[in-house]
Amino acid sequence: MRIEDLTLDELHALNELICKRIDYLRLQNDINVLSQLRLGQKVHFKAKEGQVFGVVIKINKKSVMVVSDDNRQWKIPPGLVQIMKDI
């Protein structure tokens, strides 16, 4: 199948399938991260300002509250959070 051969209706249908798959994979990733997160856990994530390091202060179904090293609070999707590894 070549994408150039698809009609507009077929492209819309394909787009809907792709978007549903992306949503499903993001949800699975969020669930995986949420199952590993604990209050007080050290985490990091990328923001416009660069890499942010902080501690989890609240865990919701669709977001995580993190207080960064500079005492700013961030509300971010769980899929963006990376747990700090102990060395």
Rank of each mutant, 00 (worst) to 15 (best):
V55P: 01
V52F: 02
L27D: 14
I31P: 03
L39Y: 14
Y24D: 12
K48S: 06
D30I: 03
K46F: 05
G50E: 03
Q28E: 13
F53I: 03
R21P: 02
V52G: 02
G54T: 04
V55E: 12
I31C: 10
S35V: 08
V55L: 04
K46Y: 03
Y24W: 06
N29F: 09
E16F: 15
Q28I: 06
R21Y: 12
K48V: 05
L37S: 04
Q28V: 15
K48H: 04
R26D: 14
N32Y: 13
K20M: 07
N29L: 13
L37M: 10
E16I: 06
G50L: 02
R38L: 14
V33Q: 08
C19N: 14
N32C: 08
V55D: 05
L17N: 10
L27C: 15
G40I: 07
N29R: 13
F45R: 00
K20I: 04
K48P: 03
V43D: 00
L25W: 01
K42M: 10
I22K: 09
D30S: 14
L37D: 08
R26W: 08
F53H: 09
Q28F: 07
L27F: 15
L34P: 04
G50H: 05
G40H: 01
Y24A: 12
R21N: 08
G50Q: 01
R38C: 11
G40A: 05
V52E: 04
H44D: 01
L17D: 12
Q28K: 09
F45N: 04
Q28D: 13
D30E: 12
F45E: 02
G54N: 01
V33F: 00
L27R: 14
E49A: 10
D23A: 12
I18W: 09
K46I: 06
F45Q: 01
I18G: 09
L39V: 10
L37P: 02
F53Y: 11
A47D: 07
L17A: 07
R38T: 09
Q41Y: 02
L25G: 05
A47W: 08
V33L: 11
L27H: 15
F45Y: 02
K20Y: 01
F45G: 01
E49P: 01
K46N: 06
D23H: 09
E16C: 09
K42R: 15
Y24Q: 11
K46T: 09
L17R: 11
V43G: 00
D30Q: 15
Q41M: 06
Q28W: 08
K42H: 15
E49Y: 05
N29S: 12
H44W: 04
R26K: 15
Q51E: 05
K48L: 02
R38E: 11
L39E: 08
V33G: 03
G50I: 08
R21H: 11
V43Y: 00
G40N: 03
V33Y: 02
G50P: 00
A47N: 09
C19D: 15
L39G: 05
F53P: 08
V52I: 09
F53S: 07
Q41R: 04
V33H: 13
D23M: 07
N32H: 14
L34S: 07
R38H: 12
L17W: 10
